[in-house]
Write a protein that binds this DNA or RNA. Structure first.
Length: 813
RNA sequence: GCCUGGGUGGCGAAAUUGGCAGACGCGCCAGACUCAAAAUCUGGUAUGGGCAACCAUGUGAGAGUUCGAGUCUCUCCCCAGGCACCA
């Protein structure tokens, strides 16, 4: 009698077993580093409860971790909490709960949800980033980088989010709006802390070429973001001043007819003191939309300055403009305008009636493509009207002109990047305090290492959006560590991307004896597979790469990159939109696993699509998954209760042999899909086919063998039911510890194989052949086939293509 | 505009090296069981024709390479994501 499948009971039993056996604990002194496997999913922000996107990401990671463990690897799969961030502050402001308490409650809830879903996390490695024990490490590291000169404070034009009341990094501004608030970003000049990520721009860019296991899409996005351009800086004399411009087209230098400066350029600011018109223009530019797409379409506007620049090679006098299309952040904030060969300069020149001069001629006389009355000609070509450089190609002219300028001290070859230094200070409360002190006598000083951590007070009251730290004298005031006089603490906190930039390393060294991580973390690093959402393509994944390189150069880690293989999980959609708490009604994971069981939810998310693909969530898929698990369950009891006498070699029937072949093929297929392809939906298909094949036969040694294979290949996906059924079969060892099976190859070969037959390239039927049949035999058998024979009768056989075990194609004349 | 993916039944998808397109599911249809329903089981399910065996058509569109193309090449269309006044 088969008992009913009650997922909740089965799952509790399995989870209790794993817990009492410490199945996921990994002894740090464990085995050889070569056998270590580090499987990591991006840790969550503790927002309150899990959504389907979480379930999918963590299930995929869990499948990988469990598979690698079956394959004999020593696997760590840690979990923790990215616990600092704005939602906690917003909850505090709206509901008057201190952020620390709100966060702790959410963590409690989400941890129990994780446990209920049966993820193989080693909770002994859990970290919470708002824990002073955790952020002490990054305060220490920040100070170390400060000493090294990789951290600096600078007064600069920054992105201000008026809703969140804080500055944002460039990476956190999307289309001119704050990435979380959606508020229009304002430009403000403020003193802020920066990491010198641009020092690593070249390495961050070049290393991407040596990362074959990262998706091309992400590498492209990071390349675009860093955006390296090789070019020439050219100095134009402006009376006693000098304006430096950056260009990648030094070959067009003789075509420069004016200079254009960014409205934020210091020279413009200086000139504006004497000009009301210029002041108005600068202010108007500040108000304009910062959205790149808008900017690209904006009309080119400018105001002429009362200055004249001297062309460095011709000595010609050029007018100077403040222009809205020149960005202060890129290059030097000033450009030489070549209207003949740059479309933006051309449009500006047309508007303000400035001369347009041709200095590049197309290499092949293609009349239509070069009509400076219609538009600029921006392709490479050869030089004209350029004095001694006439006739050179653009490429050689760039080098020659740079050389000439360098010799005269009027220019130099430089490389510029779109990537800016990482702005890490935030004017918010719920984050890691920046360990700096301001003394009225001694200026800005680091907190002495012995005073770390600077602990964020958690007993706070909010009065509006502003950080409560400013109203807390007990936090603010201290004696200056240098002069002993009155000093104040920095009240800004770190960008929360700071905490997530190194947590993966801390997981590999859960109780470090060193300040940040232990050298032993290197036995796990880099992370073998990193699983997460594409939304972190630039922000988190670029910062973490940068951080890893800084840690390497500080002797803390010995690898170049943090994540070897990056697996980006597609989105779970509902009505074509990304699922979140608000839009995912009816697909609350908790409701689903309470009703259908964790295994059914896991199976449904894995079976729906390959991990990288987005899919539309449908509740029927969990019902289907449960239906399958019930079939697996009753088949298991059938196998457990059947009395099977092992058959002697040679005794097995052809159908039993066929099943044993299928079991072997399924095992290999699952191995390849889990290990190499990372396509898990096809493992489920394979398992279902094997299930169907077993069900069609009466219990035998063959069905028993196949059923055990079935449980093993399913166990990474549905660990609870397979744990239970494995023991039901009478096994003494738990399935999680059983290892990936090795099945002895079958002595009995196939009697016959099927072969598809085409006539004139059209498929006409299937024939049975001995596995070693030759072409003659194949053609003869095909002739005997009714349907194929009919088509063969239509003409004379002219050519035969025979690929054994693949195809027979018969060509008639 | 540039870059990166992708386009296969009513739906999710499979086809990994060019070799029987649509496996495996979901949904739907029919049947069995039942007083009935649910659950379960059996069969069917790309499109058109045919009682059927089969035949024709079919992987966004068009061309090409090949004995043979969802898969390779070229041109184009559409969708998603990224970048974008970057000098």
């Amino acid at each position: 009698m088969t008992p009913a499948y009650l997922p909740i009971e089965v799952e509790h039993e399995a989870q209790a077993y794993w817990k009492s056996n410490g199945s996921y604990r990994v002894d740090p002194e464990g085995d050889a580093p070569e056998n270590h496997f580090y499987c990591l999913e991006m840790f969550p922000y503790p927002s309150g409860s899990l959504h389907m996107g979480h379930v999918r990401t963590y299930t995929v990671g869990d499948v990988i971790a469990r598979y690698q463990r079956l394959k004999g690897k020593t696997v760590i799969q840690p979990m923790g909490w990215d616990a600092f961030g704005l939602p906690a502050e917003n909850a505090a402001i709206e509901r008057n709960i201190p952020p620390a308490r709100w966060t702790a409650q959410n963590i409690e809830n989400m941890r129990s949800q994780f446990q209920r879903l049966g993820f193989a996390f080693d909770w002994g490695r859990e970290v919470t980033t708002c824990d002073p024990e955790y952020y002490k490490g990054e305060q220490w590291f920040f100070l170390r980088m400060y000493e090294k000169g990789l951290v600096y404070r600078k007064n600069s034009m920054v992105n201000w989010d008026p809703v969140e009341q804080t500055v944002l990094a460039n990476e956190q501004v999307e289309n001119g709006r704050g990435w979380r608030s959606g508020a229009k970003i304002q430009r403000r000049e403020m003193p802020q802390w920066f990491f010198r990520i641009t020092d690593y721009a070249d390495e961050l860019l070049d290393e991407l070429d040596a990362m074959p296991d990262w998706p091309e899409q992400i590498k492209t996005m990071q390349r675009n973001w860093i955006n390296r351009s090789e070019g020439v800086e050219i100095d134009f004399a402006l009376g006693d001043d000098t304006v430096t411009v950056f260009t990648t087209r030094a070959d067009t230098l003789f075509g420069a007819t004016y200079l254009a400066l960014s409205p934020e350029h210091p020279l413009v600011a200086r000139e504006a003191q004497q000009s009301k018109e210029l002041q108005r223009f600068v202010r108007a530019c500040q108000r304009m939309s910062l959205a790149e797409a808008d900017m690209a379409r904006q009309e080119k506007l400018g105001v002429r300055l009362d200055l004249a620049a001297t062309h460095p090679l011709t000595g010609e006098s050029l007018p100077v403009y403040a222009a809205n299309f020149v960005l202060m952040e890129y290059g030097s904030g000033a450009v030489m305008s070549v209207p003949g060969h740059d479309q933006r300069d051309w449009e500006f020149a047309k508007k303000y009636d400035l001369p347009i001069r041709q200095v590049i001629a197309p290499d092949e006389a293609s009349a239509g493509s070069c009509d400076l009355a219609q538009s600029a000609f921006s392709d490479y070509g050869h030089l004209v009207n350029s004095g001694a450089f006439d006739g050179l190609t653009s490429t050689s002219a760039i080098a020659k002109i740079a050389e000439t300028l360098e010799a005269e001290g009027k220019g130099r070859v430089v490389t510029v990047y779109r990537l800016r230094d990482w702005l890490v200070s935030r004017q918010r409360y719920w984050g890691c305090p920046i360990p700096m002190i301001q003394c009225s006598e001694c200026g800005i000083l680091p907190v002495p290492e012995s005073d770390l951590p600077v602990v964020l007070p958690t007993q706070v009251e909010f009065r509006g959006v502003q950080s409560p730290l400013g109203d807390m004298p007990e936090f603010l005031n201290l004696a200056c560590p240098k002069c002993g006089g009155k000093a104040r603490r920095e009240t800004d906190t770190f960008d929360t991307f700071f905490e997530s930039s190194w947590y993966y390393a801390r997981f590999a060294s859960p109780a470090p004896k060193a300040p940040l991580i232990d050298p032993q973390a290197n036995s796990w690093l880099p992370v073998d597979v990193y699983v997460g959402g594409i939304e972190h393509a630039i922000l988190h994944l670029l910062y973490a790469r940068f951080f890893h390189k800084m840690m390497r150069d500080s002797g803390l880690v010995d690898s170049n990159e943090p994540f070897k293989h990056l697996l980006l999980i597609g989105m779970v959609l509902k009505d074509g939109k990304k699922m979140s708490k608000s839009s995912g009604r009816g697909a609350d994971p908790e409701k689903l696993y309470t009703r259908f069981g964790a295994d059914a939810v896991r199976l449904a998310t894995i079976f729906a699509a390959p991990p990288t693909q987005s899919f539309e969530w449908r509740e029927e898929s969990v019902e289907g998954a449960l239906r399958y698990l019930r079939r697996l369950w009753s088949l298991g009891w059938r196998e457990a209760e059947a009395e099977i006498t092992p058959s002697e070699p040679g005794e097995a029937s052809e159908s039993e042999l066929e099943l044993r072949r299928l079991a072997r093929e399924s095992l290999n297929k699952a191995d390849d899909d889990f290990g190499r392809r990372l396509h898990f939906n096809t493992v489920v298909s394979t398992a279902m086919m094997l299930t169907n094949a077993i069900s069609e036969q009466a219990p035998s040694a063959a069905t028993r063998e196949a059923y055990e294979v079935l449980l093993l290949i399913l166990s990474p996906i549905v660990p609870h039911i397979t744990h239970f059924l494995w023991l039901t079969l009478g096994k003494s060892e738990a399935i999680i510890d059983s290892g990936w099976p090795e099945l002895a190859p079958l002595a009995e070969g196939r009697k016959s194989v099927q072969l598809g037959v085409q006539v004139n390239g059209k498929f006409r039927g299937v024939i049975e052949l001995p596995p070693d049949a030759d072409q003659l035999q194949a053609v003869d058998t095909a002739r005997e086939h009714d349907n194929i024979g009919k088509f063969l009768a239509a003409g004379e056989l002219r050519k035969v293509i025979y690929v054994p075990e693949r195809i027979l194609n018969l060509i008639l004349s």
